[in-house]
Nucleic acid binder design. Structure first.
Lengths: 325, 325
DNA sequence: TTGTAGGCGTTATCAA
DNA sequence: TTGATAACGCCTACAA
């Protein structure tokens, strides 16, 4: 494969001139410019981008850290990141972690090694001190409330959203409310949990362990929830479900079991995916794609200007009222 | 940021020795080995991976080309690729193309520029001659039937799967069969179309344009199909739907419109996503994740051994019989 | 077992 | 406008 030196030789110019032509810099005589392009054509030359990366000290690649690539929640975020990255000529390196510390560390190491210029962490399990170690190696944006810590972040106000949903259910007369969540660890989950407990406290209800369903991520998890709900001696009359996917599962398997929604069981969900519309599930619209877009922009701005306009941005959810409550 | 030379200086050895230690090569006195690690620790050193890439002429990155990151079909493929890539220490660079030629070209260019060692093209729009141009720049695996062309491929036998489904519907007495597809261009779509036409010809039915629904990708497209179906003067009694997402939309909006499934309209779908189980949709299980895994392995084998065991692999679909037909 | 030196392919600085 | 040449940071013969 030809390199810039060969081009220089064939075109009868210096490598510096070739580089100038290749990168569209001024101050090159039209004649030489042409000679260079001809040589490029003739030798079927292309830049070796690794050499560019090394020389420039940057890659125009942003790393995306997420537990599962194949979940609509993260799919929506990645979509938002991807769209914006495309606009600015950046590429995306995917780090699927399955919430394994090792994998997350690897992504952070890649930032240090300059494999990526910046990192967007959609969800994590590593502790703050670990992230702190890497924060001088490049911009890191987290999709969670970092509560004043010295890292960039764009996040959805899950506390408010959950609280809002709880109040909505209470206004409809519900007092016995359970909830379904993907995992109980993690900032976002904690925020939701806090809202749940706070809301219950307000009406002097004490939370019950058996009304909290963990590991709810996919449609099929709704089946499990329905079965467990059916087996409950005392049942909640409403369920707050952190994902439309799971809510859809609950509604669908619930129907098959003859459960009337919302009469027997009200379902209030989050995300506002198309499936929620199709099933007429009341949900909170979460601006996931927007969050991805904003996360990328933060990285981008940091990279290009070195400045940070806003260190942290909070995004609000929006009620989509349908008939599952 | 410290580099290998500084480490050498601090440790009192040569850069070659540092490199040996860093890469775990033998023939280094334990004492020097220790000195190197201490220097690494002291200077908080990390390799610059771009320099490694340049020196080695490879990146251990595989590019993944797909139209939409946020669709379950492609999500499943990426998941399979990702899982396998993780095992072998490879990383994934995502190219979301939206089926724009420009974007696909960019990915191919990245192969030439050695940004990626290989490319997995999940779906494409560029023509064969374009791909031919790049095939000497690194292994390219396509997820479609390449029909003897000189490229690697792993693909699902869509023709057989569609034909099988058509026969299944016919056995159930259907003769008026429509179909829904994501796009009408593309090898996979053409294979499905061919099966559809061939099957109709077998029973001496001529295809009708108004029974073919294009641009069906997401749940919400099912709504459109239902509305169009309702408006049809003469309606098909069965629909072959190329995606569970769309089938789910059809079933759900169909129910809301009072359509009985399968009595008024039978729905036969593809993918076997959890949503199909939840809605009791008869579908063909497509080994998407497996296809991704195999695609990666092909690239990997090609890269590591330089040899190709199998140039092309065909994967079969499997009937999942439920009650929508 | 260790070190020297050249190579990987660009970019960027500086002098002409 | 142009060209030399020194980075960029690591790998790897080859020699010792």
């Amino acid at each position: 494969m030809a390199n810039i030196r060969e081009i220089a030789k064939v075109a009868g110019v210096s490598v510096a001139t070739v580089s100038r032509v290749l990168n569209g810099y001024p101050y090159v005589k039209e004649e030489k410019r042409k000679a260079v392009w001809e040589a490029v054509e003739k030798l079927n030359y292309t830049k070796n981008i690794n050499a560019v990366h090394l020389a420039k000290g940057k890659t125009s690649i942003v790393g995306v850290v997420l537990p599962y690539v194949n979940h609509p929640y993260f799919g929506a975020i990645v979509e938002g990141i991807s769209r914006e990255a495309l606009r600015y000529g950046y590429h995306l390196l995917l780090f699927q972690t399955n919430y394994e510390v090792q994998k997350e560390l690897e992504a952070l190491e890649m930032l240090r090694m300059k494999q990526v210029d910046g990192l967007i962490i959609c969800s994590r399990i590593v502790s703050w001190d670990v992230i702190d170690v890497y924060k001088d190696d490049g911009p890191i944006v987290l999709c969670e409330d970092v509560k004043g810590r010295d890292v960039l972040s764009v996040y959805i106000n899950h506390y408010e959203a959950f609280l809002f949903a709880m109040k909505y259910l209470m206004n409809k007369g519900h007092r016995k409310i359970g909830y379904c969540i993907g995992r109980t660890t993690g900032t976002n989950s904690k925020a939701r949990e806090a809202a749940y407990y706070d809301a219950l406290r307000n009406i002097h209800e004490s939370p019950r362990k058996e009304w909290i369903f963990d590991h709810c991520l996919y449609i099929e998890d709704g089946k499990r929830v329905v079965n467990e709900w059916l087996a409950l001696p005392e049942k909640p009359t409403a369920l707050l479900v952190s994902s439309d996917q799971v809510a859809a599962g609950i509604v669908l398997w619930g129907r098959r079991e003859g459960i009337n929604i919302p009469e027997d069981l009200a379902v209030f969900s989050f995300d506002n995916h198309p499936i929620a519309e199709a099933l007429e599930i009341t949900t909170m619209d979460l601006p996931l794609s927007l969050m991805g877009t904003k996360a990328f922009r933060m990285i981008y701005q940091c990279l290009e200007t070195g400045k940070i306009a806003k260190k942290s941005e909070k995004l609000d959810a929006r009620l989509i009222e349908r008939s599952s409550v």
